[in-house]
Every structure is written in structure tokens, then in C-alpha cells.
Amino acid sequence: MSLTYILQQILNALSLGSMLALLAVGYTMIYGVLGLINFAHGEVFMIGAFTATFVLSLLGAPLWIAIILAVVASVLAGLLLERFCYRPVRGSGDITLFITSLAASIGIRSLFILIYGSRSRPFPTPEYLQGIHFFGDILVTDLNLIIFIFTAILTIILSLIIKNTDLGIAMRGVSYNKTTAEAMGINSNSIIVATFIIGSALAAIAGVAWGLQYGNVRPSMGYLPGISGFIAAVLGGIGNITGAAISGFILGVGQVLFVAFLPSTFSGFRPLFVWLILFIILFIKPTGLFRTNIKWE
């Protein structure tokens, strides 16, 4: 197994890693302020991907418009979830909150199956994104590179916001102690809403990236990436944005390498691999790889 091969596989995994990173960051932020595993986050991601599909294929609009509308749709979905599902059950216990998000997840997914059927629809990837380049023996696709760079930029901007702005500091304050934050003049509802907006927008972008990369979308597309994103959030140390992003990359790249290195009979065991990694890491370090627990970095 040559170095080129390994490098090639890592490059191939960049986009998957990016998507998981974007999802993980959303999970981790929402968990930070609400203490909620937003199980429906995968569906918010799916809604973004579906919206972009429609905008591209039905309206024939350019990609940037599709991205904007996907973000709008996902943010809207996130806000509706927050307002009508999670806010009413806030304060009645973690499990209640979790069951609500599980119900929301399955409800939204089933609603899309009800309306659009459960089969895949093609996602029209614009031609100008389908370019490929060779560096020696290594093949680089434009898409892989663009998705990665875009994600890296977004993550850096986001961590700067979290680190330096009033909003970011307030988010960290609310996640540490909501009551005290309120008594310092912070309207925790608006902070939670802002968090949902950011998290959902990132999920939408991940959704569009998914469509571009794999060329199709379907109502159940959010389930496994959603869980992987949450795993990455846990590995990153819940509430830790940089940790979540890095773990997302590790998980994405790790999955691809797992398939690349083992005989093809094992390629079906990819999910098993993800979970084994999770179990092993959590067994050794129950709080994740990075600093944890609402200490936002």
C-alpha cells in the first residue's frame, strides 16, 4: 500500500469529513445551549438538500441561489422545531426532550416519504464543479476541494464568532448556566434561537454538499449522517466546536480509510467500524477526545 494510495484516500474523504464536521458543529452547539440531542438535525440537513434539489432542477436557478434557499428552508425548519416542539417541553427532563426530538425526526422523515416517496431523486451537480486534476498520480476533484475549503472557512469564522462576539460569549454563558445568564440580562430564548439558526444553516450547507458529492437525495438520507455527526460531536467533547469539527473529519476520513485498507468483503462493515471506534474511545475516555462539557472552544 503506497503513500500515494493513502493520500488519495484521504483526499477522497475530505468532503465526507467536511459534511460530518458541519453536522457535528450544529449538534454540539444545540446540545450546548439546550442539553438536547437534536435527533431531528439529520432531517434539517435533508430538508436543505431537498430544497436545493428543487431549486436546481425545477427552477433551474444557479447554485448560489440554491444554497441560499436551502439555508432558508433548513433554518425555518430548525426554528419551527425549536418553537413548537422543544420549547414547550423545555424543563420537563432530558428524556422527554430527547423523545420529542426522536418523534420530530421520524415525523419529518415520514412526511417527506409521504409527499415525495422514499426513493432517491437525482441532484443536478453543475458541470463547472465536476472538474478533476492530477497531481502526479493523485487525482483531485474540484468538488472535494471546494467543499473542504468552504467548510474550513465556515468553521474558522464560526469559532471566531463564538470566541469573540457578544453573541458567542452569551451562547457559552447560557450553556453554562441559563438562569444566571438570564439574571445578567441575556434573553436565553433569543440565544437558543440564534443557535438553532446557525446550526440549521450549517446543516443545510452540509446537505447541499451531500447532494453535490453523491448526486442524489432521499427522505431517509439524514439518518446515518445525522448519527455520525452526533458521534463526532460526542468524540469532540460535547459543546466543543473545534473538537466537533476535527472529530467529524477524523470520522469521515477514518471510514473511508477503513474501506480502503481492508479486503472488499469487509466494506459493508463501515457502520460497525464507526461504532467500534466510538465505543473504544468512549471506553478509554468517557468524555470524548477533546475537552468537554459546555466549555466551548
Binding site: 418523534a103 420530530a104 421520524i106 415525523g107 422523515r109 412526511l111 417527506f112 416519504i113 409521504l114
Partner: peptide, 11 residues
């Protein structure tokens, strides 16, 4: 209307 029962149950 596949999915209907899950939607209603979830609601």
C-alpha cells in the same frame, strides 16, 4: 400514503 401513520404517530 406511505409514511402517513408515522407522521401521525410522531405528532
Amino acid at each position: 400514503m406511505f409514511g402517513l401513520s408515522q407522521v401521525l404517530l410522531a405528532l
